[in-house]
Nucleic acid binder design. Sequence first.
DNA 1: GGATATCATGTCAGATGTGGCATAGAGTTT
DNA 2: AAACTCTATGCCACATCTGACATGATATCC
Lengths: 105, 105
Amino acid sequence: MEKPKKDRLARAGWRLGDAADFLELSPEEAAFIELKLALADYLREIRLRNEWTQAQVARRLGSSQSRVAKMEAADASVSLDLLVRSLLMLGASRGEVGRVIAAAA
Amino acid sequence: MEKPKKDRLARAGWRLGDAADFLELSPEEAAFIELKLALADYLREIRLRNEWTQAQVARRLGSSQSRVAKMEAADASVSLDLLVRSLLMLGASRGEVGRVIAAAA
DNA sequence: GGATATCATGTCAGATGTGGCATAGAGTTT
DNA sequence: AAACTCTATGCCACATCTGACATGATATCC
């Protein structure tokens, strides 16, 4: 895994496996996390495209600004459920979500 | 929503919203649940294709037979996280998962 | 029709996720 | 440089998820 992505994950609170060494990630764990990163990026993209603040998005989702920040950061405390439900609530289609997930890294 | 799908959801423990009337599902909620149903079906498909029992799959995933059954039934107690992680662990690629999610209902 | 194998469903203690609050950082405006 | 706006991070009470166990349901074989 490249350095910038590693740093981003470390910042987001991922202490993978628990060996704390990203290189020991199984391919499945890596794919899962990258998939979440892609969705997090897409969430931010939608927000910026619509010129919304995190607080505005939070109100739409019935959540808080801090959680939206964590979603965009792909924080370890954010589930795939929350990410996907949020994207759908912000207007993304099921097809769009699928394509983001399928997209090659 | 068609009757058979309704029944399947009712069986799986979904008491949507809480009005207990599926017709009151928001489009986003509906899309989210159908997305989970599609992944659940795909999980079963992979299992049968490989001629595995639920118990064997459970061992591969480090889980239990009952949870695998609930996954395939898209039980309300099963998260999207668990479904996607399980699919990846059973050999599905990120692209495959994305395509299943994107697939039209 | 008992034994065996597989899948389904209920329950629950412990693990993980969530909204919300407080506050810090970073950029703008006046 | 104070006030303001937006985003990031730490924390926690409460909610939801999860593996495991027990048991029920159904099918097949002998």
